[in-house]
Amino acid sequence: MTRLDKVLAELKNQNKKGLFIYLMAGVPDEAGTIEAVKAAERAGANVIELGIPFSDPLADGPVIQEAGIKAIKGGMNLTRLLDLIKKIRTETQIPLIGMGYINNILHYGVEKFVKDFKEAGLDGMIIPDVPHEESADIRAVCKKEDFHLIEFVTPGTTVERMKETCSSADGFIYAVSVNGVTGARDGGAQAFGQAAVIDYEVIGKVAELVKKETNVPLAVGFGIGSPEAAVAAAKHSDAVIVGSAVVSKILQNKLGEAEKFIASLRTALDA
């Protein structure tokens, strides 16, 4: 059983909702990332998604884009990330899932990436620009190494695709709440033309269908920027994922505020 499986099973036993917090590796800097992971855990996060900066992040809104640029400028790359993860692992055993784009991984080499990062203490990967159709090779490598490769469902995923995704789902299923990109819809900076309000019942319907297909837990992410939104997103899921709303505070060097915000999400989810 992996660190992630263990935590997800405990949450289920305790009948608690999971809180997954996204942080960008290298923001505000390497030491600051380690502090942020510890703060998130103290505030009640169950899983950390560690963003790997890419120059052209197609699935991300302005906040994560800004964080990525800052991280790249600060010198973050896969070699340094490997070192950072090893350091984080001396401090905490919280499940760590990487979130990064395929070009960096291809460049590093898929097999080498999975082996090296698994050994360093990473538990799995979310690769938003690798849909199910393109993931067969990577999936095979991850399976061999007992490394999670997280799959997606969205409001537009057809029943046929959803079934296919569920059949190979591992770790948890990432349910994207809205057609569009990442970014808190309650008050955060947003890209042009993105939905201003999210109706979490839409992905809720997809989530209910997923539950009939698989026991793999489901986490809802994209757009969650308040305790109210977290509760709404958690209604049909096992966990919620919050990124931009936390990262925007860390970008302003307000780690204390970020910790308080995460604690407020925890309180709301536990109420």
Binding site: L58, A59, I102, P128, D129, V130, P131, H132, E133, E134, F152, V153, T154, P155, G156, T157, T158, R161, V176, N179, G180
Partner: peptide, 12 residues
Amino acid sequence: GGQYVPETVMPV
């Protein structure tokens, strides 16, 4: 070639 895009774009 291929289709390296977010899942939201796959249906379209």
